[in-house]
Amino acid sequence: MYEIVLQTEDLRKQFGGPGGIVAVDRIDLSVRRGEVFGFLGPNGAGKTTAIGMLLGLLQPTSGRVELFGQPVTPRHVAALRQVGSLVGAPAMIPGFTALQNLHVLAGLHPDVDERRVDEVLEIVGLAEAANRRVKGFSLGMKQRLGLAVALLHRPELLILDEPTNGLDPAGMREIRELLQTLAGAGATVFLSSHLLHEVEQVCDRVAILNRGRVVAQGEVSLLLGDQAVVRACVPNPVAAAQALRQLDGVTEIESNGSYVHVKGVSSEAVNLHLVQHRIIPSELTSGRPDLENVFLELTR
């Protein structure tokens, strides 16, 4: 049995009153302890609005958010003490140094001592810039400091929105490894990102949001498996497509030249079915798409 640390039920946010814009439309999410959960969606899909509600910054129009089994709204925020977040532009006082910013925040957490402040600066690779003013930081450095802020109080749940934004490839890789290490140590990571290969590498499960609705949710491997495409080269693609429509599990069929593309079933099933209908494929391949293809397919 999985322990659910983050759950939303029928979560909805409409801006501008009745008739206004529905940014998030009845989404149900559940994130298990210790997993890295990817939250994907094109720009304007409602990801940031959903995260705003998870963090108690936006009042849901309807539905509910629960973290660690406790409700979260702008007026119920106790559960957020176990959460670290990096959302949007990293929040910090520009005239202060990195160290001063962390010291200010450490005042909120009695269990965070000087050693932990140094430790998080080391983790995010900012130890040498600790005494520099934040206003002189590059975007990547600000992002690293934002991560340090999120990690400072050893949260059980991290909610991160584009954490590798502004980082170079080596930095992105470091952060990916860090997230995996944190998850390995028992932390739960809710990762919103548009870098699909990053999500594919790091996440155990994902939810894909489009126009405010969750269009897919589940384990990355299963989502990719569902979308596997079997390509058969046949003498009569129209007849083959007609025959394959009768096969259980087929979700989509498309004929293109001498090929038929089938989704939702294995290559073995396609082969057997075609042969039973006296259609012998001269070529049969099965391709698993990457997350980018699945994402584009689901959000087009």
């Binding site: 007026r75 925020v77 106790a78 957020l80 003490r81 176990q82 929040a91 006082i93 909120l108 109080h153």
Partner: peptide, 13 residues
């Protein structure tokens, strides 16, 4: 600066 939102997202009423 977003620091207000940061405090609030840390569970401060």
């Amino acid at each position: 600066w977003g620091t207000l939102q940061l405090w609030l997202s840390r569970g401060v009423p």
